[in-house]
Design a protein around this nucleic acid. Structure first.
Lengths: 336, 336
DNA sequence: TATTTTTATGTTATGGGTAACATTTATAAT
DNA sequence: ATTATAAATGTTACCCATAACATAAAAATA
């Protein structure tokens, strides 16, 4: 592969002149520019990014750390991030943390050594603080999406868990439900924490006495709701919930699968609602009532904030972008 | 950021010794190893990949070029690719070509200058030949997934379009269908070509006279089947198809949406089958009858072949891995 | 024409790591 | 004790591009 020296020799100029032609920097006469450009073309020269990164200390590569690209929510985030990154001349490294702090740590080390210019991360939880501090120590800018992390002040793009929870619960309450269970993610994740807080608060405001036994925290990843669902179902009629609020799409799906196994019908016997669409294409299975978050924009705006931070042309203070959810009412919560 | 020289100075050894500790190469006494490792820990040293790439001429970065990360098929491919890449110590750059040759070209240029070690690509179509030749010229190894490209001999991992088509069609025929429409992708994509060929062949073998008017090619991306579906529906009863074979998941979904708009019920009025699951989680919407391809393995094995090629420890001849589909019969093709 | 200013180009050093070779130190063999 | 051998560590040069500084050539001004 041709280097800048090959070009220089053949064009009878110094490597520096070639560099200037390639980067369109400094002053070069039209004559030499043409001469050099011709030879660049001829030898099919493509700049060596590693060498460039080494001197310039920037790679034009960003990293996207999400928990699972298999979840349509993150899939849309990735798509938005990709589109914006490409538009701005950056490339995107993909990492799946699987909601695991350890895996996230491994990736963070890899990223630092890769010399990425910045990181867009959906943190695995509050322990991520450690990883983020590693990024800070290595002066790698980052933006958080979907979740914030205790003790870290940074740019972030997230949804409004309170509003989403409120809309979903008010809808259920409007449908006559008062025994509403919550199947939530782990409380070391900010969204889960906020949804839980909102859940109790909104029930209280609606004059419904929340039963702590109806709320559970399960892992977003293993996401095994069967045991808890079975417990719920076997409660005496007076205690048994008539609706379930699942913290996210995969929990909801899993919950519905558990219900099916237990021969409980949705929505006839029990209503189910959740955050985020489990389907990649909306309106194909118009079944689940959801608080749909603008996932594409999480990614798109996240990358935008990140690049502003990297290039230093944004506001000095950290930006917090809160994108509201849109409630979509479908049959999983409607009495037939 | 700490460099190998910082470590060396503090540990009172040469940078080379540090390098040897880091890479576990050459011989080092247990004593120095421990001493150096302690300081590496202390200073939080992380190797600089750019520098490494520059000398070693390898970046440990691979590129995944797919057409749309939003499609669960590619989502699973990406997941498999990611997992294998991580396991082998590589990172993955993500690119969405949107089935567009031009976009793919842009990405290929970007990739080359990024200095990726290899490319795993689902090509946009036969024109991709040009992009692949660019890769060859720059000596960047690549592996194709899902689709092959005319005139390019390389490692590849793909499904068995013939078998999948056969299984789907035989199932439909077994259900008593003889007027079966085909809504296919564009013929410059190998899978579409092969599915079309298989479609006509299998109908012929089954003694069914195929009606060319029942077959259409639409774009995988815009994927607007409405007009064609409407045409099908308005055919006289004697000609009207009783089943539709859609070439992929998104075409199938779109087709079903079109059918709904036209008040045609699936499967009561018309059966629909296709390749690949449109749902990220199987068994949640057990609706569509599909020929499910092992997408995760496309990615996983693709990366494996790619790394073998890169590291030169695989067989010299190009490998063609054909992964068979699994037919999953669900209600979209079953008479109630 | 001599001098200053501007424009165009070149030289040197550097970024962080490693291969290849050189040297020192420890261990084994005579 | 002496030499041969192996093990541990060090030195030097290079990978490729560019920033910072230096110089030569051309244009503008006195």
């Amino acid at each position: 592969m041709a280097t800048i020296y090959d070009i220089a020799k053949k064009a009878n100029v110094s490597p520096m002149t070639v560099s200037r032609v390639v980067n369109n920097s400094g002053k070069i006469s039209e004559k030499t520019r043409e001469k050099v450009e011709k030879i660049i073309e001829e030898l099919n020269y493509i700049p060596n990014n590693a060498a460039r990164s080494l001197t310039l200390k920037q790679s034009k590569i960003l990293s996207l750390v999400i928990t699972d690209i298999t979840n349509p929510f993150y899939t849309k985030v990735a798509r938005g991030a990709e589109d914006k990154a490409k538009q701005m001349g950056y490339r995107l490294l993909l990492s799946n943390s699987d909601e695991s702090f350890e895996k996230e740590s491994e990736y963070v080390d890899m990223l630092i050594s890769s010399g990425v210019d910045g990181v867009l991360m959906a943190p695995s939880g509050d322990e991520s603080q450690k990883n983020l501090k590693t990024l800070i120590k290595n002066r790698i800018p980052f933006v958080l999406i979907d979740r914030h992390v205790k003790g870290i002040d940074c740019d972030l793009v997230m949804g409004d868990s309170y509003q989403g929870t409120r809309q979903l619960l008010e809808h259920l309450i409007g449908q006559g439900h008062s025994k509403i269970a919550l199947i939530n993610g782990p409380t070391n994740v900010s969204t889960a924490r906020e949804r839980e807080k909102a859940y109790f608060e909104i029930l209280r405001l609606a004059g419904i006495e929340a039963d702590k036994k109806l709320a559970a925290n399960i892992s977003y990843m293993q996401n095994d709701s069967y045991k808890f669902v079975k417990n719920l179902i076997s409660l005496p009629e007076s205690k048994r919930p008539t609706a379930i609020f699942a913290a996210n799409n995969f929990i909801a799906i899993n919950t519905i699968k558990s219900l099916r196994q237990l021969n409980v019908r949705v929505p006839e016997d029990i209503a189910v609602v959740c955050f985020d669409d489990p389907d990649p294409i909306p309106d194909f299975n118009p079944f689940l009532t959801i608080a749909a978050q603008p996932a594409y924009n999480f990614g798109y705006m996240g990358i935008q904030l990140l690049i502003e931070r990297i290039e230093g042309n944004g506001p000095a203070e950290k930006q917090k972008v809160i994108l509201p959810p849109e409630i979509i009412i479908r049959s999983s919560s409607l009495k037939k």
